[in-house]
Design a protein around this nucleic acid. Structure first.
Lengths: 256, 256
DNA sequence: CGCTGTGTTGACAGGTCTCAATATAAGTGG
DNA sequence: CCACTTATATTGAGACCTGTCAACACAGCG
């Protein structure tokens, strides 16, 4: 990992990780959370646009995003790239590449971020002695698959306006999952170039499509933030099926 | 699951499952394989076009594909659908929906198939007492994420010919992974409609694109089979990055 | 034998991309 | 704080790729 000059280590019990994402399917007990936090490496600050790990780099573990946004790209030889995932705080980064020797995706800080590392040894420890945490990671990976499947469907089967609406709604829903009091107004650090790379359109066409949303009053821009003013209309436009993630603790963990 | 009238139960030690996919990252010992086979439910035969589990159906576990091809679709309200995954023998089916109450994808038999079930209880047992098998499932899930990311990149950033080439090559590579002696000639049970649903094109455009491959001699059709006659040309056309899956047993399992 | 699913082809419409240019905002160094 | 540079956003015109509509051939199958 490229270390920022501002990087520093504050590992310790008081320095608990944001585990919202891993804990979403069921509560882990205090001991499990504490051990998980202890397994994480030092937290590292990085500036926006810094590269956490580039496609082709050797895989030495995964990362836990403590704060900020990270974009995962698949780079193509011609210089274009596909934004395959926008990561928000508490996300596990880079796990897909665990199946590979070298990273399949480039992880790029979209905002200033703080990340911690989870080494192979830490992963091994989790699977060896923390089966409920292992199951949580497994479920998160499968949740990511559903999200990728929905993105694939959006890009493969729907128009530019539908794609953009679905993507903006998806980001909003994820922010709500992190903070239930999140309103429809949120900071949007992704540029229109990012949006195009995410939904399979050119920057120019994203601009035209986004402009239609603005003109229609469905979205309003306020500085670097946007407000989704007409969620029902956006939802109707974006035909994406609703996904209700499991949150009933007993369903799976009781069996472990 | 919809039971075929031909379904029958042959669970038993002699009835070992095809575990190529789960074993790909590392060898499990005989005891682990045996217990895994015992955990699986009865094997069930189903005819082509039968639905294993439909989008919206309650999730009660996952499936192990013993033989045949299965397609996973995300269905849209307007009747169109995205083919998000082609499953081959030894694949785990339906795992993405573990994170949900109801299935995110429809699993449809593309050929006549034989599947076995893996219940929640079986999954719990795996995570509780077979950590190396759990890790294998986790790695498979992450491998699937890479594959989905590559499909997303293909659809989002490349032309119709590039998409079709990448998809045909992907199928071929997976067949080779199952059978290293697999030649470039293989049965293709997917219709052009399937292909279009997989790579985000209309059937008609798939036909035109495929025809160009035929006219160029890159692909030859032999009955229900096709032969990829010019793999280098197809690979150059499909800009998809090559993914070399880990197969060094020690890297992760030694830590468990 | 008709039926249904699949493959094939042409003409045309439409959505998205490309190219070019400009405006606006953000970042940087003096 | 300003001048400069860079990144991002915006707009128009035209080309190209892909989709739509319509029609027909062909095969498998009951």
């Amino acid at each position: 990992m490229q270390l920022s000059k501002h990087s520093f280590d504050t590992r310790g019990l008081m320095d608990s990780l944001p585990l919202n994402r891993i804990l979403q399917f069921a509560d882990l007990d205090g001991d499990e959370r504490q051990r998980l936090s202890q397994l994480a490496g030092p937290r590292v600050k990085m500036a926006a646009k810094q590269v956490i790990r580039e496609q082709g780099d050797p895989v030495e573990g995964v990362f836990l995003l403590r704060s900020g946004w990270v974009s995962a790209f698949v780079d193509l030889p011609d210089g274009t790239r596909q934004l395959v995932r926008v990561h928000l705080p508490s996300d596990v980064l880079g796990a897909p590449s665990l199946a590979l020797h070298v990273a399949a995706e480039s992880l790029v800080a979209t905002t200033d971020i703080v990340v911690a590392t989870l080494s192979f040894d830490a992963m091994g420890e989790i699977f060896r002695s923390m089966p409920r945490v292992a199951a949580s990671l497994f479920l998160c990976a499968n949740q990511e698959r559903v999200i990728l499947m929905d993105r694939l469907t959006s890009i493969g089967r729907t128009s530019s306006a539908q794609r953009l609406a679905a993507f903006l709604l998806h980001i909003h829903e994820r922010l709500v999952a992190i903070n239930p009091r999140q309103s429809a107004l949120f900071e949007m650090p992704l540029t229109q170039k990012h949006l195009g790379e995410a939904i399979g359109l050119t920057t120019i066409h994203v601009n035209r499509t986004f402009r239609k949303f603005l003109d229609a009053g469905m979205v309003v821009r306020k500085g670097r933030a946007i407000e989704l003013c007409n969620l029902p209309a956006l939802r109707q436009l974006a035909v994406a099926p609703e996904r209700n993630w499991r949150s009933d603790p007993g369903w799976f963990y009781n069996r472990i």
